[in-house]
């Protein structure tokens, strides 16, 4: 838990502060210094165009995090809206919406994601859209289940009896109740979305190749790995694994805290 907090804090600081503070150009090509192993001047070594890998990794993480957070937020908003609507309205709306959810879920989501990016020109936003549109399904299911269980709660009955409209019941009572769950789902989705960005970029379908995303870095390093140069693959790989595990760890600890079984500390 503490390790996760420290790591996530460090990552956020690095990503926010390093680019403006360090006046180095991550794109600076130095063909005289290409594929250097890690050293004091280049702690992570350099890539096949002589660019500093530490700097490239930090910029790459910045891009990957941006994609991850943006995609997770979009997916959560879509999922919560769809799930809450289905759960709150019920009846044929619920059946119809959940049928759509099941249909979308039956297509492997990486495949669907590839299909969606392929419809746009390469860039940051198509990747966000692709990841978001393939990941709102589980949130929609969770939120719908939560709303359904709340709907039969006496306090919803009391609101109906007090003259509240459907809209008011949804906004005032149902939405605030599912928000912690939805926020948790969003936090857990960030690492997942980062992996997807990397996967798409690695397949050459994601971000344009000049953008230093972690997936692109690993894709670029494929050739060098075969030649025995391990550092261009290892460091970007670690930059995916460690932050995503840290975020997942933090979200997991948070889930323990909002666990509905945890009641007031005082048992009076």
């Amino acid at each position: 838990m503490r390790v996760s907090v420290a790591l996530v804090g460090g990552i956020v600081l690095a990503v926010l502060l390093v680019p403006p503070l360090v006046q180095l150009d991550q794109q600076a090509v130095d063909l005289g210094a290409k594929l250097l192993p890690p050293s004091w001047s280049h702690p992570f070594g350099t890539d096949d165009l002589g660019r500093d890998l530490l700097l490239r990794c930090i910029y790459g993480l910045r891009v990957s995090l941006l994609v991850g957070v943006a995609a997770a937020l979009t997916a959560t908003v879509i999922g919560t809206a769809v799930g809450a609507t289905a759960g709150a309205l019920g009846g044929w709306v619920d059946r119809g919406v959940m049928r759509v959810v099941d249909t979308v879920a039956s297509v492997p989501h990486l495949l669907l994601g590839i299909f969606i990016v392929a419809m746009f020109r390469p860039g940051l936003w198509p990747v966000v859209v692709s990841v978001a549109l393939t990941h709102w399904l589980s949130t929609a299911r969770i939120v719908r289940a939560e709303v359904l269980s709340l709907r039969s709660h006496p306090y919803i009955d009391a609101a109906v009896s007090g003259g509240a409209s459907r809209w008011r019941v949804a906004v005032r009572h149902l939405l605030p109740a599912v928000l912690p769950q939805a926020a948790l789902a969003a936090a857990l989705m960030v690492p997942h979305a980062m992996w997807h960005e990397s996967a798409l970029s690695f397949l050459g379908l994601g971000l344009p190749t000049h953008m230093a995303s972690l997936g692109n870095l690993i894709q670029d390093a494929r050739g060098s790995l075969l030649a025995g140069q391990w550092w261009p693959t290892l460091f970007p790989g670690l930059f995916i694994i460690v932050p995503t595990l840290a975020i997942a760890g933090l979200a997991g600890a948070w889930r323990e805290r909002i666990n509905p079984r945890r009641r007031s500390e005082l048992m009076l």
């Binding site: 006496p154 306090y155 009955d157 009391a158 009572h173």
Partner: peptide, 11 residues
């Protein structure tokens, strides 16, 4: 309406 369990009938 007033229900049996106040805990469940209050948001």
């Amino acid at each position: 309406v007033v229900f049996q369990q106040p805990r469940l009938s209050a948001d």
